[in-house]
Design a protein around this nucleic acid. Structure first.
Length: 1025
RNA sequence: GCGGAUGUGGUGGAAUUGGUAGACACGCUAGACUUAGGAUCUAGUGCCGCGAGGUGUGAGAGUUCGAGUCUCUUCAUCCGCACCA
């Protein structure tokens, strides 16, 4: 360990004395020049322009577009973009017409929060964050576009979209209108124009309408015709795929807006972690429930990870069962419950309603009224979060009322309890304690008798929830296995009119209004309370100017501050003040890339018919239940209306892992000195003996590591001693004091502080820069290792500004070049895995590119290439690589791809191969990973500039790999003992003979005859002794 | 609790169909060249052992001629969902 550190110390000294430029100017592989040159070339020549009309087969490679934040990109962001770019370039080489676009999801909270703080219009913030500039506080912002450009991505920038631009959101508004004008016909199982429904209503009423709706009243044609316009619209809202309704929403007071279910994580807002409460508000919603089943079955047709699919399945939450009605004894009320186990109907021991259930007050008997009122109050005071945290506590209250069992007519107690959720199913359950643990717990807790209807099943200790049971004690269900009993029970329930078979989904309709400024305005105005759509001719409804980005005094959203005449396209009416949520624009952006400048349609039909859906989508898995579900929903909807020819947006998806930061830490303690007269001085104060006491004592991680933890007595003893030593050595005493007056040092308050990672190299801290940066540490004592180094500790954390562990791509591109960074990010490990960022290995990748360069050049950096026929060795190296690179790309194994390039270049280097034919093929192969240097070498090989991107991917020829001999590993009882070179074509029998004749074989046989010899020709030999 | 994923040298990781475990790279060791080396080159590097050899993919069992890979059990870590009737 010590030698390691002393070496590091040497490195460090040299680092300080040698400016970085030195190793750049001396070098042959001049990446800054090469990369700048080709970036310009690609931009000037629009090399990566995708053709809308092409005879080539299409391939659509898409990245999840970023929100352009002021913090800029860190090395984690481009990871997925690098992978998709490599793949896009690979597909171009394979002869595909590749659509590989990029844009910005530019509506969002941070720009709005910034606007609230600084008054700067979010549109300006957004432009600065994309194009670069200076923010209101004077911080320089390099801009997303520039950061993306230096990576050498092959985006077709002519297709850029920004969700916040009016040209784009015009069509988001248009799609909203289509949803408004449609309902879901459950017979046709698709969305249909609402006009058809209106015709049906005026002809036949709604009696025979099969549609997804929460509306359960019936009306006739005559009644419909008699409705006022307002009444008609109110009814239609119950059918429209986007509709206005008073609904319980997640209200976040801190953010001043409602949130969708996927934006609420364990009771607090996903952004900022603010508490969220339930509030009844009039809001726009999306009837995504209509698509629940198709969203579920569609998952089977896409190539996504099981994890994401399961998350979506879970979110949709399909349960198949039955709804059953229980009459309330002595009342007209009829409680509907949903159950997935209708076979256990004879096991119903009691019923439980959610405290919020509408019947509770009416059925509660006088004797229980106080208790029920009390319980309801308690339940209402509990927040969603408390209720979740409180799962273990069983609570409930008897109502005194009884329900009548539909089959037996027996009286069943009705309780209320908060384990029954008002928001799921009917807010009521039939409790079957023998088959459900929660019911069982409830019954035990309140001493309710449990009916056991399972044959030979002991339920005295716990419920039995498995379905591998036989039903007993249940009349017509007796002796049936549960699965059969379920079917028969549903049949009987339906026959006797107690209910019907039913499929229930957990998926809720998605709230679509936000009380914010920086989002798409709705193309909606109101006459009184009735909403009307703005005519297409007036789209887009642009965001109006407002004086402040805050709600009005009377709680209206920020848009209510706008001068109405400035944006109200319909005389005298009130515009909608809400804006759309962030996911509106991102739900269809992949379509707009196909036709980004179309002013007449959201996408031209012939274009979407050519490009179809995304072939490869790369992005984070955090969008599993948000963006990915909503865009599937909109896609299916647009498909139903015939606008697009596919109903799943993303065919294959890969979720890149998160790149975590590696934080560096320094360890420090306060201390106090004790003088001979027992006066104590802490490090914060001036001592009478010294001019200034050092504020802290910093100790190296090596010291901490030696003792394990800061509470160790030995550690503190050593710390005290060294500190005293250093104090003596560092400071001259004042005239009236003497250093000998110190008798001891006490160590207080250990703490660790984040150190900016730019001040640390190989865990060694640049102490001077550190004390300059961390002002309160100026003059501190640093307890360094023998070699003078201060070693920092480290931890893996999320990359964030506040942890000073952010690594930007810009710095690394400057130091090593984009080609190196691209390859290094891929080399780090499998794309899907999350991993801590570490620059330790980057030099290896950089060296690889330099070795590649040296294949083409001599020691004086002159190009030296040979013509003529390549030799067999070089051909073998090349074709082995062609095969591996192709295979690796096909299975998205980018990290092994990099390894295989290294192997190839190492081999060709050993062979001193500078054959043009070989190198030309290698350059094509490598160009998707390291495009800049390959373009340069491509031209050096005598090709026309810019043709590399559309060259042909080399063809693998097996013949170059065939060898006359194979080196067989020979195992005895599965343990490899020696190698033997034998002709590849040799027969099994001959191989066996040769192996056994080998002298080493004799040794391992120890005179025995082998029991068995397994020969796998061209692979291995195993001898069983 | 349920669901998903992951456990391999000092480190990142490789081993695609059951067939030489540790490719490739970092780091480290020794050497060469050199005024110098953060350059370059050569050799070595899982662990134990001087060696022969033994041992080794979180742990334990099993299937197999042969298991990192398949089956079962179990432990740990990470992620998602969580009273869903």
């Amino acid at each position: 360990m010590n030698s390691q550190y002393s070496n590091r110390a040497k490195l460090k000294q040299n680092c300080l004395s040698l400016p970085l430029q030195l190793h750049i100017t001396g070098m042959e592989y001049n990446f800054p020049e090469i990369e700048a040159k080709w970036r310009k070339f690609w931009a000037d020549n629009k090399t990566f322009k995708a053709e809308d009309n092409s005879t080539k087969p299409k391939f659509y490679v898409l990245d999840m577009f970023p929100y352009p934040s002021g913090a800029g990109l860190h090395v984690g962001h481009p990871l997925g973009y690098i992978a998709s770019d490599i793949y896009a370039r690979y597909k171009r080489l394979q002869g595909f017409n590749v659509l590989h676009p990029m844009g910005y999801d530019s509506f969002g909270l941070p720009a709005e929060q910034y606007a609230i703080q600084t008054g700067q219009h979010p549109a300006l913030t957004t432009v600065t964050n994309i194009d670069g500039g200076t923010d209101k506080e004077g911080n320089k912002i390099s801009g997303y576009r520039k950061q993306l450009d230096i990576m050498g991505f092959s985006f077709d920038w002519d297709r850029e979209v920004r969700t916040s631009s009016p040209e784009y959101y015009k069509w988001t508004q248009w799609i909203f209108k289509q949803l408004y004008n449609a309902y879901y016909d459950t017979t046709q199982d698709k969305a249909v124009s609402i006009d058809a429904l209106i015709v049906e209503f005026s002809n036949n009423g709604n009696g025979s309408v099969n549609a997804t709706t929460d509306f359960d009243e019936t009306f006739t044609a005559d009644q419909w015709k008699a409705y006022s316009e307002e009444e008609k619209e109110k009814t239609l809202q119950q059918y429209r795929l986007t509709y206005l309704a008073d609904s319980w929403v997640n209200w976040c007071p801190a953010l001043g807006t409602v949130l969708a279910n996927d934006e609420v994580v364990s009771g607090v807002s996903e952004r900022g972690g603010h508490p969220v409460e339930q509030k009844l508000m009039r809001q726009w919603s999306m009837r995504i429930k209509a698509y629940a089943e198709r969203l579920l079955t569609g998952l089977e047709t896409v190539d996504w990870t099981d994890s994401i699919k399961d998350q979506q399945r879970n979110w949709i939450g399909k349960s198949v069962g039955a709804s059953v009605h229980f009459k309330v004894d002595g009342s007209d009320h009829d409680i509907e419950v949903f159950t997935t186990r209708p076979d256990t109907i004879y096991g119903v021991s009691f019923m439980v309603l959610a405290p919020e259930h509408p019947f509770v007050d009416e059925i509660t008997t006088a004797a229980y009224a106080a208790g029920v009122a009390n319980y309801k109050k308690e339940a209402s005071l509990k927040s969603e979060r408390d209720r979740m945290a409180d799962v273990k506590n069983i609570s409930g209250q008897n109502t005194g009322a009884f329900a009548l069992h539909p089959f037996t007519g027996e009286k069943v107690q009705i309780w209320i309890g908060d384990y029954v959720l008002a928001s799921y199913g009917t807010g009521a359950v039939m409790a079957v304690p023998c088959g459900d643990q929660r019911d069982w717990d409830f019954a035990k807790h309140f001493g309710i008798d449990i009916i056991n209807i399972f044959k030979d099943q002991d339920i005295s200790e716990a419920a039995y929830a498995e379905k591998d049971v036989v039903i007993a004690n249940s009349d017509f269900l007796n002796d049936l296995p549960a699965k059969k009993a379920i079917k028969l029970a549903v049949y009987e329930i339906e026959k006797r009119g107690f209910g019907q078979g039913k499929t229930q989904y957990r998926l809720r309709d998605a709230v679509f209004s936000r009380q914010r400024y920086w989002g798409e305005p709705f193309p909606v105005y109101y006459k009184g309370e009735t909403p009307y759509l703005v005519d297409d001719a007036h789209l887009p409804i642009t965001l109006p100017e407002v004086d402040k980005y805050l709600p009005t005094e009377d709680g209206e959203p920020p848009l209510a501050r706008a001068e109405q005449s400035a944006w109200n396209h319909s005389e005298g009416d009130r515009m909608e003040f809400n804006t759309m949520p962030g996911w509106a624009g991102s739900s269809w952006y992949f379509l707009r890339y196909m036709d980004p400048k179309n002013e007449n349609e959201f996408v031209a039909k012939e274009k979407v018919e050519y490009w179809k859906n995304v072939d490869l989508y790369i992005g984070g898995s955090e969008h599993a239940t948000g963006h990915l579900l909503y865009s599937r929903f909109w896609t299916k909807f647009l498909y139903d209306l015939g606008y697009i020819p596919f109903d799943e947006p993303f065919q294959k998806m890969i979720n890149q892992g998160m790149i975590l930061g590696r934080s560096s830490f320094a360890y420090r303690a306060k201390y106090r000195i004790v003088t001979s007269d027992f006066t104590k001085f802490t490090s914060e104060f001036e001592s009478p003996l010294l001019e200034h006491l050092p504020p802290f004592v910093y100790y190296s991680y090596s010291l901490l590591e030696k003792y394990g933890d800061v509470s160790s007595d030995e550690f503190n003893k050593e710390l005290r001693e060294i500190t005293l030593e250093r104090l003596k050595g560092l400071y001259k005493p004042k005239s009236n004091g003497n250093i000998e007056d110190y008798i001891s040092v006490d160590i207080l308050d250990h703490s660790q502080v984040h150190v900016d990672i730019s001040l640390v190299e190989n865990d060694i801290l640049d102490i001077d820069s550190f004390t300059n940066w961390k002002k309160d540490s100026k003059g501190s004592i640093f307890l360094v290792n023998e070699d003078g180094t201060y070693i920092c500790g480290h931890e893996v954390e999320k990359m964030s500004k506040s942890k000073y562990n952010v690594q930007t791509p810009d710095e690394l591109v400057e130091k090593y070049g984009a080609d190196t960074l691209r390859m290094y990010e891929m080399f780090l490990g499998p794309l899907e895995q999350s991993k801590p960022w570490d620059t330790k290995g980057i030099s290896g990748v950089h060296n690889f590119l330099r070795k590649l360069w040296r294949l083409f050049h001599d020691a004086d950096n002159n190009l030296t290439l040979s013509d003529g026929e390549p030799d067999a060795k070089a051909l073998k190296s090349l074709h082995k690589t062609i095969k591996k690179i192709g295979d690796d790309l096909d299975r998205f194994s980018f990290n092994t791809g990099v390894s295989n390039f290294m192997i190839c270049v190492n081999e060709l280097g050993d062979q001193k191969c500078n054959n043009k034919a070989i190198l030309q093929e290698l350059v094509i192969l490598l160009s998707s990973y390291a495009p800049h240097v390959c373009e340069e070498l491509w031209v050096k090989l005598g090709n026309e500039a810019g043709t590399l991107s559309y060259a042909q991917f080399p063809e693998f020829k097996e013949e170059f790999l065939v060898e006359a001999n194979h080196s067989y590993p020979v195992s005895f009882n599965g343990k490899m003992r020696f190698m033997i070179d034998l002709p590849t074509a040799m027969s099994r029998e001959d191989v066996e003979k040769e192996v056994l004749a080998h002298e080493t074989a004799q040794k391992w046989l120890e005179g025995n005859t082998p029991k068995k010899v397994i020969v796998v020709p061209g692979k291995i030999v195993n001898v069983v002794v």
